[in-house]
Amino acid sequence: MHQMTTLYKTLLVTTLITLVGCSSSPTGRKQFAILPDSQINQMGVKSFAVMKQETPASTNTPLKQQVQCVTDKLIATLPDKYRNQAWEVVLFDDKQVNAFALPGYKIGVYAGMLDVAQNQSQLAAVIGHEIAHVLARHGNERVSTQLATSQALALGYQLSGEATPEKAAIFQALGLGAQVGIILPFSRAHETEADLLGLAYMSEAGFDPRESAQLWKNMAAKGSSKTPELLSTHPSHSTRIDTLQKNVPPHLVTYEALVADNKQANCY
């Protein structure tokens, strides 16, 4: 009885830790980020340095200029706190269809992404999404949530009596439940938030926000993961396309106003 009571307390503590927000994201969503941003940024900078050593940068000057131009246009729309940072973007000579951003203002785009992002606005959707991850402190949230969850389960294991096969099985199940019920949905929330923030960034920079949904149609045509959305860190392509299309209208107004003033982006 004591063992199960402790388990329930552990679950309660884990849930409360995850739900309590210490700050707010740019969309107003409550966040749980317990680590100093300076520490997270250092981790990002070190990781990026390792990636540059392991994967060669592209030598294709026109493509590098296009990626840099799109990035510069997007960064120019950000608040001073972020616009004035020393952003670094690298086009990696790798055919995988991927891009990423790391704390510390680092952006990586793989050459294979340019086969799917077929115009400047679709590339802006990709890079704007990655910039949003940095501004919304998703890296800090991810590490903080995983740290809090693992610590809570470890504490519960220590306080719940002697080690038995039954106890091991229970905590294994709790770990899986935390992964599916807390960490994975949290990551999907990050992806959706980054998509919506990216819409704002790209339209304010003079890129057509309608191309964001088309990008994911291209991704779906390229091939999709067979992992069920419940067990994935990303929304399904259909969910993503539907969310983007529903949120395009106000950003389309911003973009069309820039077009009317001949201020749309021109990177290609």
Rank of each mutant, 00 (worst) to 15 (best):
Q3K: 11
L7H: 04
L7G: 02
L7N: 00
Y8I: 08
K9T: 11
L11P: 06
V13R: 04
K30F: 13
K30D: 15
Q31M: 06
F32M: 08
I34A: 09
I40P: 02
Q42K: 14
Q42L: 15
G44E: 01
V45Q: 14
K46F: 12
V50P: 09
V50N: 04
M51P: 15
Q53I: 03
N60M: 07
T61A: 02
P62C: 09
K64G: 08
Q68P: 00
Q68A: 11
K73L: 00
I75S: 04
A76W: 06
L78W: 01
V89P: 10
V90W: 01
D94G: 05
N98C: 14
A99T: 12
A99P: 14
A99M: 11
I107G: 00
G108P: 05
Y110C: 09
A111G: 14
M113L: 11
L114H: 03
V116T: 14
A117S: 04
Q118E: 05
Q120S: 09
Q122A: 02
V126N: 02
H129K: 10
A132L: 09
H133L: 04
R137C: 11
N140L: 15
E141T: 04
S144A: 09
A152P: 00
L153K: 01
G156N: 06
Y157K: 10
G161I: 05
P165Y: 06
P165T: 15
E166P: 05
I170H: 08
F171W: 09
L176H: 12
V180M: 03
G181H: 01
I182L: 04
E191K: 10
T192P: 07
E193S: 06
A194S: 06
G198W: 00
M202F: 00
E204W: 01
G206M: 08
D208N: 12
E211P: 01
L215T: 03
N218P: 14
G223W: 04
S224F: 05
P228A: 15
P228Y: 12
T233N: 08
P235G: 02
R240W: 15
T243P: 09
Q245Y: 08
E256W: 09
A260R: 02
Q264R: 12
Q264K: 15
